[in-house]
Design a protein around this nucleic acid. Structure first.
Lengths: 325, 325
DNA sequence: CTGTTAGCGCCTTCAG
DNA sequence: CTGAAGGCGCTAACAG
């Protein structure tokens, strides 16, 4: 059996008899043949590898999204190369450059706040499609997967309003990321919709870390006219708020109500249990990967954006009674 | 300037004048030269890529370890290719095969329970060194990083003993993984050291999931002679136990004491706050990566095992009084 | 179906 | 320091 036939058999091209094919496969197995991926990539001009870039892999959200994406990609025959930007623009562009040099076939990117120009020249002359998730570079990429940030924050504001709160503050996330910006905008819109003015100092921008939120919460509560309710833009921020409250002996939900975007899997077991916006992180990774696979196989001809739905999970931190479930 | 000179300049070989070198570098930048990693890999027979295989990326422990490893590897010029074995042996061997085909330069593996033989032929004829972490394949690999499981469990048992408990049960983890086995062995040893017999049914083997622990806890408490204290072999298992207790209205720590291996970052905010064995997950990934880098550069000539230290974090779930910090 | 051939992009001789 | 040449392992194209 010839070399070219073997190659065809192993890769399933051409029309071969089933007999020849299985003979080749057997022989390959017997010889324990391991095709070299780099050589194949060089020849095929395609690596079957996609780059995955996030601000922080150790965050439950990104970790879950990674898992979702990984599963979907693996099913489609792709491998994933991971890079962590550590919430730094410089590291993000470096990561993209590395990935481009690797000739990845596609990119999954939760940007930490790249400008369109910076993005363009980071991926210069690469034709790998890029799908954004969580946070977006406006006007770029082949598609995007975002949470329904607007709906989520609106649910939160309305719910607090239902509990009688009017003095509602926001622990906002990084304003270089669209997820942070959208949630803040949604907060403003929801407040305005109820003709509530946002007092000075009620919006506190944080990095996405509990430490940052802890400090911001203290600042918020040290004000002359402290809020009676706080909306945290992420799970980390909600935890930071919880820590601060514990430190100053503020008891939730009696003295202060707290709700958060992101429902951590232990939300039920916190004290008090956390009222939050839930969604399936795994799905956002999976959806992004699905879009990317479409884009890489050429089945995605125009920019597509999918919004992952969110829901309000009522628990005790907002003032709702214990028995919910 | 010649091609060969350029190559030498870009890769820092040979002896070139500083002038030539910088000229080449400038020119490369001006032309926006992106060297093809696959081509380079093919020629150099080295990919500067390492494979990272874990049972579940979305688990906080593995996610943190991944981050630690990634940072260390990136600093040394390596990229990481991630594979999730989903706690299935078959997927783990498939992942290893893929990685070997990719000609990765090294492997970081938290095995889900491979036999030495299975491991051997999964990585057949690959000379990529493998560093195990968290769970090990006995007698294989170039090194390993493990937690001090024995010390951890001993601390837990002794602490419960100090609170007067004698009827101490164990939610054991998967017994195909050394981390699960070591913790169980340590439990038996610690009990025996105090001449305590482990009653029938006090050891419950779980998968590493809260659901599994929830069921096991119910079984434990349904026994005729239920334990007065439970040791959970991981954070997931502790959460499952907490959930079960909530379901059956058992209040901690009065009716039952709970302690766990793994101190989750929200351990402080649970109700009750969780007494647990803490350690730095990030470090285990980093240590493993360091070992691997040594092994890949040939500086590691014999098997080396590092044990990451652990400490007891006293909180309320064991019966300790509130104010600890 | 067979064989042969040419190259993917890079690095490393080796002779100038 | 230059330039040419060979080859890493694989696949596609071509003529038998």
């Amino acid at each position: 059996v010839s070399l070219s036939t073997a190659s065809r058999a192993l890769n399933g091209r051409g029309e071969l008899s089933a007999a020849t094919r299985s003979a080749v496969v057997e022989a390959a197995a017997a010889l324990d043949f391991r095709p070299s991926v780099p050589a194949r990539s060089l020849r095929m001009r395609t690596t079957f590898t996609v780059g995955f870039v996030v601000p922080d892999v150790s965050s439950p959200f990104y970790a879950a999204a990674l898992q979702g994406a990984q599963q979907r990609l693996e099913a489609a025959g792709y491998r994933v190369m991971l890079m962590d930007s550590a919430q730094e623009v410089a590291r993000e562009t470096a990561a993209l450059a590395t990935l481009v040099n690797h000739r990845v076939d596609g990119l999954l990117l939760a940007t930490t706040g790249l400008s369109a120009e910076a993005f363009d020249d980071a991926i210069a002359r690469s034709n790998a499609p890029c799908i954004f998730f969580d946070s977006i570079v406006a006007g770029r990429g082949a598609g995007a997967v975002e949470l329904d940030n607007h709906m989520g924050v609106e649910l939160l504001v309305d719910h607090l309003l239902g509990h009688g709160h009017r003095r509602i503050a926001l622990l906002a996330g990084s304003q270089t990321e669209t997820s942070g910006v959208e949630r803040r905008d949604a907060y403003r819109a929801a407040m305005a919709a109820h003709e509530l003015k946002v007092p000075l100092g009620y919006e506190r921008v944080c990095r996405w870390s509990s430490e940052s939120a802890r400090a911001a919460t203290h600042a918020l509560l040290d004000q002359a006219d402290p809020p009676t309710a706080i909306i945290a833009s992420s799970a980390e921020l909600a935890l930071g708020c919880l820590i601060a409250c514990r430190e100053r002996g503020v008891t939730l939900p009696d003295e202060l109500a707290l709700v958060g975007f992101d429902d951590p899997y232990f939300g039920d077991l916190l004290e008090p249990s956390l009222t939050a916006i839930g969604y399936i992180a795994h799905d956002v990774g999976e959806a992004a990967a699905s879009l990317l696979v479409e884009a890489m196989t050429g089945d995605l001809d125009e920019f597509r954006c999918v919004r992952v739905p969110v829901e309000l999970v009522r628990r005790r931190s907002c003032g709702c009674p214990e028995a919910q479930r």
